[in-house]
C-alpha cells in the first residue's frame, strides 16, 4: 500500500492554494510552503480528502528564521516559521508543510480543530516562539512558568538576569562566552565571519 508521491500531493495542494510553493530544505527534504491565510484550507484538504487523508499530525514545531542564511527559494527574512509534519496511516505517505508569520504580528490559524494533537504542540510553539494561534481554545504557556517574560527560542531572546528574585548566576560566578543577560552591557559589534557559500 503506497501513498501518493510528494509531487502529486504538492500538485493537489496547488489546486486549492495558488501561492503554494515547493521548496527544498538544505538537506534536500522537499516541503510545501503556504501562506498563513491559506492554511485552514490546505489543512482541511490534507485531513479530509480521501486520496490524501493525512490523519496523523506527527509533529508541529517552529523555528526562528532570524540569522538564517537565505537562498534562492527562501530568501533571508526575520519571520517565524511553523512546520507541520503530516502522515497518512491509511495511505502511508507523509508531507511537510511550512507557514511563515511575521515577527511582530505573529499569528497563524490553529489546526487543532482538525488534529486535536495540535492543542499541546501549538501551546509549545506559542510558549517558546511566541506564535499566536488564532482560534486555539486555551493558548497558555506549557513549558515555561505562566509569568515568564519573552519567548526563549527566538534568536533575539535576551536571557533574564533573575527570576523571582533568584539571580541566574551564583555569587561571584562568571563564565567566559556566556550568553548576554538582561542588564549586561551591549556587546561591541564584531565583523561577521564570512563563510563560503553563506554571504
Amino acid at each position: 500500500m503506497n501513498g501518493m508521491t510528494f509531487e502529486a500531493i504538492a500538485a493537489r495542494i496547488a489546486q486549492v492554494c495558488d501561492e503554494a510553493m515547493v521548496v527544498r530544505s538544505e538537506n534536500g527534504q522537499p516541503f510545501v510552503r503556504v501562506p498563513a491565510a491559506a492554511l485552514p484550507r490546505v489543512a482541511a484538504l490534507l485531513r479530509r480528502d480521501p486520496a490524501l487523508l493525512c490523519d496523523a499530525l506527527m509533529d508541529l514545531t517552529g523555528y526562528d528564521r532570524l540569522k538564517y542564511p537565505g537562498n534562492e527559494a527562501s530568501p533571508a527574512n526575520d519571520a517565524i516559521a511553523v512546520v507541520y509534519l503530516l502522515f497518512s496511516q491509511q495511505h502511508h505517505h507523509r508531507v511537510m508543510l511550512e507557514v511563515q508569520a511575521p515577527r511582530a504580528l505573529c499569528s497563524v490559524p490553529t489546526v487543532s480543530g482538525l488534529w486535536p494533537a495540535a492543542l499541546y504542540f501549538e501551546r509549545e510553539v506559542f510558549d517558546l516562539l511566541g506564535v499566536q494561534f488564532v482560534g486555539h481554545p486555551s493558548l497558555e504557556r506549557i513549558l515555561c512558568p505562566d509569568d515568564w517574560v519573552g519567548h526563549p527560542l527566538r534568536k533575539d531572546y535576551l536571557y533574564p538576569a533573575q527570576y523571582h528574585g533568584v539571580p541566574h548566576l551564583r555569587e561571584g560566578q562568571h563564565f567566559d562566552g556566556a550568553p548576554r543577560r538582561q542588564g549586561d552591557p551591549e556587546p561591541t559589534p564584531t565583523p561577521a565571519p564570512t563563510k563560503k557559500g553563506h554571504p
Binding site: 526563549p152 533568584v166 539571580p167 541566574h168 551564583r170 560566578q173 563564565f175 556566556a178
Partner: peptide, 13 residues
C-alpha cells in the same frame, strides 16, 4: 549554569 535560562542555580536558593 552557563547556557540555560530556565535552570535554577542551586536548590539551596
Amino acid at each position: 549554569s552557563k547556557w540555560s535560562y530556565s535552570v535554577l542555580n542551586g536548590v539551596d536558593k
